[in-house]
Design a protein around this nucleic acid. Structure first.
Lengths: 204, 204
DNA sequence: GTCTATATAACGATAGAC
DNA sequence: GTCTATCGTTATATAGAC
Protein backbone atom coordinates (compact mmCIF):
# COMPACT_ATOMS: atom_id res chain seq x y z
CA UNK A 1 0.00 0.00 0.00
CA UNK A 2 2.91 2.32 0.56
CA UNK A 3 5.09 3.61 -2.28
CA UNK A 4 5.07 2.27 -5.83
CA UNK A 5 1.47 3.42 -6.41
CA UNK A 6 -0.43 6.63 -5.72
CA UNK A 7 -1.11 6.88 -2.05
CA UNK A 8 -4.70 7.99 -1.90
CA UNK A 9 -4.61 8.19 1.83
CA UNK A 10 -1.91 10.84 1.70
CA UNK A 11 -3.64 12.76 -1.03
CA UNK A 12 -6.75 12.95 1.14
CA UNK A 13 -4.83 13.87 4.25
CA UNK A 14 -3.39 16.80 2.37
CA UNK A 15 -6.79 17.89 1.14
CA UNK A 16 -8.25 17.64 4.63
CA UNK A 17 -5.46 19.74 6.06
CA UNK A 18 -5.80 22.26 3.25
CA UNK A 19 -9.50 22.58 3.99
CA UNK A 20 -8.81 23.31 7.64
CA UNK A 21 -6.08 25.85 7.05
CA UNK A 22 -7.63 27.65 4.08
CA UNK A 23 -11.02 27.93 5.73
CA UNK A 24 -9.51 29.38 8.85
CA UNK A 25 -6.95 31.74 7.33
CA UNK A 26 -8.10 32.39 3.80
CA UNK A 27 -5.99 32.04 0.68
CA UNK A 28 -3.40 34.70 1.37
CA UNK A 29 -3.23 34.02 5.09
CA UNK A 30 -2.61 30.30 4.65
CA UNK A 31 0.93 28.89 4.38
CA UNK A 32 1.84 25.78 2.45
CA UNK A 33 4.13 24.92 5.35
CA UNK A 34 1.23 24.97 7.78
CA UNK A 35 -0.86 22.74 5.55
CA UNK A 36 1.99 20.27 5.24
CA UNK A 37 2.50 20.26 8.97
CA UNK A 38 -1.23 19.77 9.61
CA UNK A 39 -1.24 16.88 7.17
CA UNK A 40 1.86 15.38 8.77
CA UNK A 41 3.78 15.28 5.52
CA UNK A 42 6.50 17.20 3.74
CA UNK A 43 5.84 20.43 1.92
CA UNK A 44 7.06 19.03 -1.38
CA UNK A 45 4.24 16.52 -1.36
CA UNK A 46 1.64 19.22 -1.62
CA UNK A 47 3.11 20.19 -4.95
CA UNK A 48 3.47 16.60 -6.00
CA UNK A 49 -0.26 16.03 -5.60
CA UNK A 50 -1.72 19.44 -6.31
CA UNK A 51 0.98 21.29 -8.27
CA UNK A 52 0.38 24.76 -6.81
CA UNK A 53 -1.18 26.62 -3.91
CA UNK A 54 -3.75 28.22 -6.20
CA UNK A 55 -4.75 24.83 -7.50
CA UNK A 56 -5.13 23.32 -4.06
CA UNK A 57 -7.12 26.32 -2.93
CA UNK A 58 -9.41 26.01 -5.89
CA UNK A 59 -10.34 22.48 -4.90
CA UNK A 60 -11.18 23.59 -1.39
CA UNK A 61 -13.09 26.66 -2.43
CA UNK A 62 -15.26 25.01 -5.07
CA UNK A 63 -16.21 22.30 -2.63
CA UNK A 64 -17.08 24.81 0.09
CA UNK A 65 -19.03 26.96 -2.26
CA UNK A 66 -21.22 24.19 -3.54
CA UNK A 67 -21.71 22.90 -0.02
CA UNK A 68 -22.94 26.33 0.91
CA UNK A 69 -25.39 26.66 -1.98
CA UNK A 70 -26.43 23.53 -3.74
CA UNK A 71 -28.50 21.97 -1.00
CA UNK A 72 -30.48 25.15 -0.43
CA UNK A 73 -31.14 25.56 -4.09
CA UNK A 74 -32.25 21.95 -4.18
CA UNK A 75 -34.80 22.48 -1.42
CA UNK A 76 -36.13 25.64 -3.03
CA UNK A 77 -36.50 23.87 -6.37
CA UNK A 78 -38.50 21.00 -4.92
CA UNK A 79 -42.28 21.00 -4.64
CA UNK A 80 -42.68 21.04 -0.88
CA UNK A 81 -45.10 23.47 0.77
CA UNK A 82 -43.55 26.83 1.56
CA UNK A 83 -43.49 26.42 5.32
CA UNK A 84 -41.78 23.04 5.04
CA UNK A 85 -39.12 24.54 2.81
CA UNK A 86 -38.52 27.23 5.39
CA UNK A 87 -38.02 24.74 8.19
CA UNK A 88 -35.81 22.56 6.05
CA UNK A 89 -33.50 25.36 5.01
CA UNK A 90 -33.03 26.70 8.51
CA UNK A 91 -32.44 23.22 9.81
CA UNK A 92 -29.97 22.30 7.10
CA UNK A 93 -27.89 25.42 7.51
CA UNK A 94 -27.89 25.14 11.27
CA UNK A 95 -26.63 21.57 11.21
CA UNK A 96 -24.11 22.18 8.48
CA UNK A 97 -22.62 25.29 10.04
CA UNK A 98 -22.49 23.90 13.55
CA UNK A 99 -20.15 21.28 12.16
CA UNK A 100 -18.24 23.60 9.88
CA UNK A 101 -17.83 26.85 11.71
CA UNK A 102 -15.59 28.68 9.27
CA UNK A 103 -17.56 27.86 6.14
CA UNK A 104 -19.71 30.97 5.65
CA UNK A 105 -17.02 33.53 6.43
CA UNK A 106 -14.60 31.64 4.23
CA UNK A 107 -16.93 31.55 1.26
CA UNK A 108 -18.02 35.15 1.62
CA UNK A 109 -14.59 36.62 2.13
CA UNK A 110 -12.87 34.68 -0.64
CA UNK A 111 -15.59 35.46 -3.12
CA UNK A 112 -14.35 38.97 -3.74
CA UNK A 113 -11.23 37.59 -5.34
CA UNK A 114 -13.07 35.77 -8.12
CA UNK A 115 -16.45 37.45 -8.16
CA UNK A 116 -16.99 36.50 -11.78
CA UNK A 117 -16.49 32.85 -12.49
CA UNK A 118 -18.44 31.80 -9.43
CA UNK A 119 -21.56 32.97 -11.15
CA UNK A 120 -21.10 30.09 -13.56
CA UNK A 121 -21.31 27.68 -10.66
CA UNK A 122 -24.84 28.58 -9.66
CA UNK A 123 -26.34 29.75 -12.90
CA UNK A 124 -28.06 26.46 -13.71
CA UNK A 125 -29.68 25.67 -10.39
CA UNK A 126 -30.49 29.28 -9.77
CA UNK A 127 -33.22 29.61 -12.40
CA UNK A 128 -35.14 26.55 -11.30
CA UNK A 129 -35.04 27.45 -7.65
CA UNK A 130 -36.10 31.03 -8.20
CA UNK A 131 -38.88 30.37 -10.64
CA UNK A 132 -40.30 27.78 -8.35
CA UNK A 133 -40.08 30.00 -5.29
CA UNK A 134 -41.47 33.01 -7.08
CA UNK A 135 -44.48 31.06 -8.25
CA UNK A 136 -45.08 29.68 -4.79
CA UNK A 137 -45.01 33.14 -3.26
CA UNK A 138 -47.29 34.48 -5.95
CA UNK A 139 -49.83 31.71 -5.39
CA UNK A 140 -49.80 32.30 -1.66
CA UNK A 141 -50.44 35.96 -2.29
CA UNK A 142 -53.37 35.25 -4.60
CA UNK A 143 -54.78 32.84 -2.00
CA UNK A 144 -54.66 35.66 0.46
CA UNK A 145 -52.55 33.47 2.76
CA UNK A 146 -49.39 35.63 2.67
CA UNK A 147 -48.35 39.18 1.87
CA UNK A 148 -46.83 40.16 -1.46
CA UNK A 149 -43.08 39.65 -1.37
CA UNK A 150 -40.41 39.09 -3.98
CA UNK A 151 -38.36 35.90 -4.06
CA UNK A 152 -35.15 37.83 -3.45
CA UNK A 153 -36.48 39.64 -0.39
CA UNK A 154 -37.86 36.43 1.04
CA UNK A 155 -34.65 34.55 0.39
CA UNK A 156 -32.41 37.21 1.87
CA UNK A 157 -34.46 37.49 5.04
CA UNK A 158 -34.47 33.76 5.55
CA UNK A 159 -30.76 33.27 4.97
CA UNK A 160 -29.78 36.39 6.94
CA UNK A 161 -31.50 35.21 10.10
CA UNK A 162 -30.06 31.74 9.74
CA UNK A 163 -26.46 32.35 8.71
CA UNK A 164 -25.52 35.70 10.21
CA UNK A 165 -25.15 34.48 13.80
CA UNK A 166 -22.37 32.15 12.66
CA UNK A 167 -20.48 35.07 11.16
CA UNK A 168 -20.61 37.07 14.37
CA UNK A 169 -19.82 34.26 16.70
CA UNK A 170 -16.60 35.67 18.22
CA UNK A 171 -18.36 39.00 18.71
CA UNK A 172 -21.39 37.49 20.38
CA UNK A 173 -18.96 35.87 22.74
CA UNK A 174 -17.74 39.35 23.63
CA UNK A 175 -21.06 41.16 23.79
CA UNK A 176 -23.31 38.61 25.40
CA UNK A 177 -20.67 36.56 27.18
CA UNK A 178 -21.77 33.48 25.29
CA UNK A 179 -19.59 30.44 25.64
CA UNK A 180 -19.57 27.50 23.26
CA UNK A 181 -22.57 25.79 24.82
CA UNK A 182 -24.62 28.98 24.95
CA UNK A 183 -23.99 29.52 21.29
CA UNK A 184 -25.08 26.02 20.34
CA UNK A 185 -28.17 26.34 22.46
CA UNK A 186 -29.02 29.61 20.76
CA UNK A 187 -28.62 28.08 17.31
CA UNK A 188 -30.77 25.13 18.24
CA UNK A 189 -33.45 27.45 19.59
CA UNK A 190 -33.33 29.33 16.34
CA UNK A 191 -34.24 26.21 14.38
CA UNK A 192 -37.75 26.89 15.59
CA UNK A 193 -37.81 30.62 16.23
CA UNK A 194 -36.46 31.68 12.84
CA UNK A 195 -39.06 29.76 10.82
CA UNK A 196 -41.73 31.09 13.16
CA UNK A 197 -40.52 34.64 12.58
CA UNK A 198 -40.46 34.22 8.83
CA UNK A 199 -43.94 32.74 8.79
CA UNK A 200 -45.26 35.47 11.07
CA UNK A 201 -43.66 38.05 8.84
CA UNK A 202 -45.43 36.59 5.81
CA UNK A 203 -48.87 36.78 7.39
CA UNK A 204 -51.13 39.44 5.85
CA UNK B 1 4.76 73.37 5.03
CA UNK B 2 6.82 70.77 3.25
CA UNK B 3 9.91 69.21 4.81
CA UNK B 4 11.54 70.25 8.07
CA UNK B 5 8.41 69.41 10.07
CA UNK B 6 6.10 66.42 10.14
CA UNK B 7 3.96 66.48 7.09
CA UNK B 8 0.53 65.71 8.43
CA UNK B 9 -0.96 65.69 4.98
CA UNK B 10 1.25 62.81 3.96
CA UNK B 11 0.62 60.91 7.13
CA UNK B 12 -3.11 61.11 6.46
CA UNK B 13 -2.76 60.20 2.82
CA UNK B 14 -0.98 57.05 3.92
CA UNK B 15 -3.65 56.20 6.44
CA UNK B 16 -6.41 56.75 3.88
CA UNK B 17 -4.68 54.49 1.40
CA UNK B 18 -4.08 51.87 4.08
CA UNK B 19 -7.75 51.91 4.94
CA UNK B 20 -8.71 51.30 1.33
CA UNK B 21 -6.27 48.49 0.72
CA UNK B 22 -6.62 46.70 4.05
CA UNK B 23 -10.40 46.81 3.95
CA UNK B 24 -10.46 45.37 0.48
CA UNK B 25 -7.76 42.71 0.80
CA UNK B 26 -7.40 42.04 4.49
CA UNK B 27 -4.16 42.04 6.44
CA UNK B 28 -2.37 39.21 4.71
CA UNK B 29 -3.71 40.03 1.27
CA UNK B 30 -2.58 43.65 1.44
CA UNK B 31 0.87 44.74 0.19
CA UNK B 32 2.80 47.68 1.58
CA UNK B 33 3.76 48.48 -2.01
CA UNK B 34 0.12 48.80 -3.01
CA UNK B 35 -0.61 51.07 -0.08
CA UNK B 36 2.35 53.27 -0.96
CA UNK B 37 1.27 53.41 -4.58
CA UNK B 38 -2.32 54.27 -3.61
CA UNK B 39 -1.03 57.02 -1.33
CA UNK B 40 1.26 58.32 -4.07
CA UNK B 41 4.36 58.11 -1.91
CA UNK B 42 7.37 55.89 -1.48
CA UNK B 43 7.21 52.64 0.39
CA UNK B 44 9.82 53.72 2.92
CA UNK B 45 7.51 56.47 4.12
CA UNK B 46 4.98 54.02 5.42
CA UNK B 47 7.59 52.75 7.84
CA UNK B 48 8.72 56.24 8.66
CA UNK B 49 5.24 57.15 9.87
CA UNK B 50 3.87 53.84 11.10
CA UNK B 51 6.94 51.67 11.71
CA UNK B 52 5.43 48.35 10.62
CA UNK B 53 2.64 46.78 8.63
CA UNK B 54 1.10 45.31 11.76
CA UNK B 55 1.09 48.71 13.39
CA UNK B 56 -0.54 50.42 10.45
CA UNK B 57 -3.11 47.68 10.23
CA UNK B 58 -3.92 48.05 13.88
CA UNK B 59 -4.81 51.69 13.38
CA UNK B 60 -7.15 50.83 10.52
CA UNK B 61 -8.77 47.91 12.26
CA UNK B 62 -9.48 49.65 15.55
CA UNK B 63 -11.07 52.55 13.74
CA UNK B 64 -13.22 50.24 11.61
CA UNK B 65 -14.27 48.18 14.58
CA UNK B 66 -15.45 51.13 16.63
CA UNK B 67 -17.20 52.57 13.59
CA UNK B 68 -19.05 49.31 13.29
CA UNK B 69 -20.12 49.15 16.93
CA UNK B 70 -20.03 52.31 18.91
CA UNK B 71 -22.88 54.14 17.23
CA UNK B 72 -25.23 51.21 17.60
CA UNK B 73 -24.36 50.79 21.20
CA UNK B 74 -24.97 54.50 21.68
CA UNK B 75 -28.46 54.26 20.22
CA UNK B 76 -29.32 51.22 22.30
CA UNK B 77 -28.12 52.94 25.46
CA UNK B 78 -30.25 56.05 24.89
CA UNK B 79 -33.79 56.43 26.19
CA UNK B 80 -35.71 56.52 22.93
CA UNK B 81 -38.81 54.37 22.46
CA UNK B 82 -38.07 50.90 21.18
CA UNK B 83 -39.51 51.39 17.72
CA UNK B 84 -37.52 54.58 17.21
CA UNK B 85 -34.35 52.77 18.17
CA UNK B 86 -35.11 50.08 15.63
CA UNK B 87 -35.57 52.57 12.82
CA UNK B 88 -32.47 54.49 13.82
CA UNK B 89 -30.22 51.45 13.87
CA UNK B 90 -31.37 50.13 10.52
CA UNK B 91 -31.02 53.58 9.02
CA UNK B 92 -27.58 54.19 10.46
CA UNK B 93 -26.17 50.90 9.29
CA UNK B 94 -27.69 51.24 5.85
CA UNK B 95 -26.18 54.68 5.32
CA UNK B 96 -22.83 53.77 6.77
CA UNK B 97 -22.43 50.55 4.80
CA UNK B 98 -23.64 52.02 1.52
CA UNK B 99 -20.68 54.38 1.78
CA UNK B 100 -18.26 51.84 3.11
CA UNK B 101 -18.92 48.61 1.33
CA UNK B 102 -16.07 46.54 2.66
CA UNK B 103 -16.49 47.44 6.30
CA UNK B 104 -18.53 44.52 7.67
CA UNK B 105 -16.68 41.75 5.87
CA UNK B 106 -13.39 43.34 6.83
CA UNK B 107 -14.26 43.57 10.52
CA UNK B 108 -15.76 40.10 10.70
CA UNK B 109 -13.02 38.31 8.81
CA UNK B 110 -10.11 40.00 10.59
CA UNK B 111 -11.60 39.41 13.99
CA UNK B 112 -10.54 35.77 14.02
CA UNK B 113 -6.92 36.84 14.18
CA UNK B 114 -7.28 38.75 17.45
CA UNK B 115 -10.47 37.37 18.93
CA UNK B 116 -9.40 38.26 22.44
CA UNK B 117 -8.29 41.82 22.87
CA UNK B 118 -11.22 43.17 20.91
CA UNK B 119 -13.47 42.25 23.78
CA UNK B 120 -11.80 45.02 25.74
CA UNK B 121 -12.94 47.52 23.16
CA UNK B 122 -16.64 46.98 23.72
CA UNK B 123 -16.79 45.90 27.31
CA UNK B 124 -17.67 49.33 28.70
CA UNK B 125 -20.44 50.38 26.34
CA UNK B 126 -21.80 46.88 26.19
CA UNK B 127 -23.23 46.76 29.69
CA UNK B 128 -25.12 50.04 29.44
CA UNK B 129 -26.61 49.21 26.08
CA UNK B 130 -27.71 45.74 27.09
CA UNK B 131 -29.17 46.60 30.46
CA UNK B 132 -31.14 49.39 28.90
CA UNK B 133 -32.42 47.24 26.06
CA UNK B 134 -33.25 44.34 28.32
CA UNK B 135 -35.30 46.54 30.59
CA UNK B 136 -37.13 48.07 27.65
CA UNK B 137 -38.04 44.64 26.28
CA UNK B 138 -39.14 43.48 29.71
CA UNK B 139 -41.40 46.51 30.17
CA UNK B 140 -42.94 45.99 26.76
CA UNK B 141 -43.64 42.40 27.68
CA UNK B 142 -45.28 43.35 30.98
CA UNK B 143 -47.37 45.94 29.14
CA UNK B 144 -48.54 43.17 26.89
CA UNK B 145 -47.37 45.19 23.89
CA UNK B 146 -44.69 42.75 22.74
CA UNK B 147 -43.76 39.10 23.10
CA UNK B 148 -41.14 37.89 25.51
CA UNK B 149 -37.72 38.03 23.90
CA UNK B 150 -34.17 38.27 25.17
CA UNK B 151 -31.95 41.23 24.36
CA UNK B 152 -29.49 39.03 22.52
CA UNK B 153 -32.13 37.42 20.32
CA UNK B 154 -33.64 40.78 19.50
CA UNK B 155 -30.28 42.31 18.73
CA UNK B 156 -29.12 39.48 16.52
CA UNK B 157 -32.31 39.48 14.49
CA UNK B 158 -32.15 43.20 13.94
CA UNK B 159 -28.52 43.31 12.93
CA UNK B 160 -28.75 40.16 10.81
CA UNK B 161 -31.49 41.56 8.60
CA UNK B 162 -29.69 44.86 8.27
CA UNK B 163 -26.07 43.89 7.73
CA UNK B 164 -26.18 40.50 6.04
CA UNK B 165 -27.19 41.76 2.59
CA UNK B 166 -23.97 43.77 2.44
CA UNK B 167 -21.94 40.65 3.07
CA UNK B 168 -23.59 38.73 0.24
CA UNK B 169 -23.55 41.51 -2.28
CA UNK B 170 -21.42 39.80 -4.94
CA UNK B 171 -23.54 36.68 -4.60
CA UNK B 172 -26.83 38.52 -4.90
CA UNK B 173 -25.43 39.93 -8.10
CA UNK B 174 -25.02 36.35 -9.31
CA UNK B 175 -28.27 34.88 -8.07
CA UNK B 176 -30.73 37.69 -8.65
CA UNK B 177 -28.87 39.51 -11.41
CA UNK B 178 -28.79 42.64 -9.30
CA UNK B 179 -26.65 45.47 -10.59
CA UNK B 180 -25.34 48.34 -8.46
CA UNK B 181 -28.54 50.37 -8.69
CA UNK B 182 -30.76 47.40 -7.89
CA UNK B 183 -28.74 46.73 -4.80
CA UNK B 184 -28.99 50.30 -3.57
CA UNK B 185 -32.69 50.34 -4.21
CA UNK B 186 -33.08 47.13 -2.25
CA UNK B 187 -31.14 48.53 0.70
CA UNK B 188 -33.19 51.71 0.69
CA UNK B 189 -36.40 49.70 0.60
CA UNK B 190 -35.15 47.72 3.55
CA UNK B 191 -34.84 50.88 5.64
CA UNK B 192 -38.58 50.57 6.00
CA UNK B 193 -39.26 46.90 5.52
CA UNK B 194 -36.76 45.62 8.07
CA UNK B 195 -38.10 47.75 10.95
CA UNK B 196 -41.60 46.75 9.94
CA UNK B 197 -40.63 43.10 10.04
CA UNK B 198 -38.99 43.42 13.42
CA UNK B 199 -41.99 45.23 14.86
CA UNK B 200 -44.38 42.70 13.38
CA UNK B 201 -42.28 39.93 14.82
CA UNK B 202 -42.49 41.49 18.28
CA UNK B 203 -46.27 41.66 18.25
CA UNK B 204 -47.94 39.19 20.61
C1' DG C 1 10.46 64.51 5.17
C1' DT C 2 11.22 61.92 1.07
C1' DC C 3 13.69 59.26 -1.98
C1' DT C 4 16.86 55.11 -3.90
C1' DA C 5 19.18 51.18 -2.84
C1' DT C 6 19.72 47.21 -0.25
C1' DA C 7 19.47 43.98 3.61
C1' DT C 8 16.74 40.24 5.52
C1' DA C 9 13.28 37.19 5.90
C1' DA C 10 9.31 34.41 4.22
C1' DC C 11 7.18 31.74 1.02
C1' DG C 12 6.07 28.99 -3.14
C1' DA C 13 8.08 25.90 -6.00
C1' DT C 14 11.63 22.52 -8.01
C1' DA C 15 15.67 19.16 -8.24
C1' DG C 16 17.46 15.13 -6.98
C1' DA C 17 18.43 11.34 -3.64
C1' DC C 18 16.26 7.40 -1.65
C1' DG D 1 5.73 8.19 -3.18
C1' DT D 2 8.34 10.78 0.13
C1' DC D 3 12.07 13.19 1.80
C1' DT D 4 16.10 17.00 2.14
C1' DA D 5 18.14 20.72 0.19
C1' DT D 6 17.86 24.65 -2.45
C1' DC D 7 16.43 28.04 -5.99
C1' DG D 8 13.88 32.22 -7.28
C1' DT D 9 10.60 35.63 -5.97
C1' DT D 10 8.31 38.60 -3.46
C1' DA D 11 7.55 41.31 0.79
C1' DT D 12 8.75 43.77 4.88
C1' DA D 13 11.94 46.56 6.73
C1' DT D 14 16.22 49.49 7.16
C1' DA D 15 20.42 52.50 5.70
C1' DG D 16 21.91 56.34 3.87
C1' DA D 17 21.83 60.15 0.40
C1' DC D 18 19.42 64.39 -0.58
Amino acid sequence: MINQTDNIETEEKVLDAARDIFQEKGFSGARMDDIAKAAGVNKALLHYYYRSKANLFDRVFKEAFSQFFEKVMGVLSGDLPLDVKIYKIVDMYSSMLLHNKHLPLFVLSEIRENPDHLIEMIKDKRKDALNNLEQQLQEGYENGSIIKISASEFFINLVSLTVFPFLTRPILKGIFEQDERDFEKMINDRRKSVPNMIIKMLRP
